[in-house]
Simulated scan of single mutants.
Amino acid sequence: MSPLITAADLADAGEVTVLDVRFRLTASAGGPTGASLYAEGHIPGAAFCDLDADLAAPPGSGGRHPLPSAESFEEAMRRLGVRAGRMVAVYDDADSTAAARAWWTLRYFGHSDVRVLDGGFRAWTEAGLSVTRETEQPPRGDFTARPGGMPILTADEAGSLAKTGLLLDARAAERYRGEVEPIDPVAGHVPGAVNAPTAANVGPDGRFLTSASLRSRFTGLGAREGVEVGAYCGSGVTAAHEVLALELAGIPAALYVGSWSHWLTDPTRPVATG
């Protein structure tokens, strides 16, 4: 079963819980928020899922987007109408970066049928499908959060994997090299990690590349049978996109949820540049 769904298939899906996960890093600087984009227009029946509040714990020692507790995530998903036996479809603007975090978190906490709208809201509108500004409170769901549905890495495990397997850094190349760091206090990467920016997982339309293309990309970076693979980014959001792309390629991978923002909380952890 593919973790992706097309706009046409979603429109015909029948009983499905749809979550709008649009997100803007620029919101703190006065730019539009995901909630404001949702209010301007969204897929009919979709509920707005706040990445910061619903898909992560508050920032702190665990990083900028640490894993939420099972209790808080369960309550958030029930409020948004998520049910155990019903498919959940998640979407963002186009490239599925934020939607992939929702996909991964739901899968981690035990929901077995989660699909990402390939191409996001852009694909929906380009298909000529209806959009609404009406907000309806979905009936309360019955989802029960059971951690452990997806593999995760601790900081120590990520550092070891960079030496013994393949640890992919999903950030832009200039951040990986340590040339710029617009968010975190120290620039650079986990020593031994291999750069694999998530932007290369999708085409100009925001849709994922074919499974064959993704597999070729990741095998070229060192993924092969018998090699353990993991991914990290700045705060565990774009790295979830990397894990999704790896799944499409048929390559299982673990997520270092705290990622670089957590790595830096311990000043004794090494930092590489270049």
Rank of each mutant, 00 (worst) to 15 (best):
G60T: 06
S72I: 05
L221M: 08
F218N: 03
G192D: 08
S130P: 15
R64M: 11
E136C: 09
R224H: 15
A145D: 02
T33F: 13
T144W: 07
A27S: 12
A102F: 01
G250C: 12
L10Y: 03
S61F: 10
W104S: 02
Y232T: 11
G165T: 05
S235A: 14
G81N: 03
V190A: 13
Y256L: 04
D156W: 01
G274S: 15
P66L: 13
G234A: 11
G60F: 03
W104C: 04
S211P: 14
L55A: 12
V16L: 08
T265F: 03
E225N: 07
D156H: 10
N195V: 00
S61E: 15
P204H: 00
A239G: 14
A102W: 05
L168T: 09
D95V: 13
F48V: 12
A253Y: 03
A223V: 05
A199G: 12
F109H: 03
E174R: 04
T33A: 12
R64I: 09
E74Q: 15
R78E: 04
Y38T: 10
M150T: 10
G203S: 05
T265K: 12
V243P: 04
R79N: 13
A145F: 00
P151L: 04
D118M: 09
R133V: 13
S2N: 09
D169N: 08
L209V: 03
Y108F: 13
D50N: 15
Y91A: 07
A272N: 03
A231M: 08
S112R: 15
A200W: 11
G30I: 04
L221C: 01
A155F: 00
A223E: 06
G62I: 12
I43E: 06
C49R: 03
H262G: 08
G31A: 10
V271Q: 07
P147S: 01
L19N: 06
S72W: 05
L153T: 05
L168M: 10
L25N: 08
G62C: 09
G230K: 05
D20K: 04
P147E: 05
V202K: 12
I152D: 00
F73L: 15
K163F: 02
A89K: 00
D118Y: 02
A13I: 02
D266M: 06
S72F: 02
V243I: 15
E136D: 12
P151T: 02
L25K: 11
P44W: 07
G165M: 08
G222M: 13
L221P: 05
L244S: 02
L129A: 14
S211D: 13
D205L: 11
A102V: 09
I152S: 12
A39C: 11
Y108P: 04
Y232V: 09
A127N: 12
V227G: 14
T265I: 01
S216F: 04
S61Q: 13
G30M: 03
G149N: 04
A89M: 02
P270R: 08
A162Q: 11
H262C: 08
F208S: 01
V186M: 00
A84L: 05
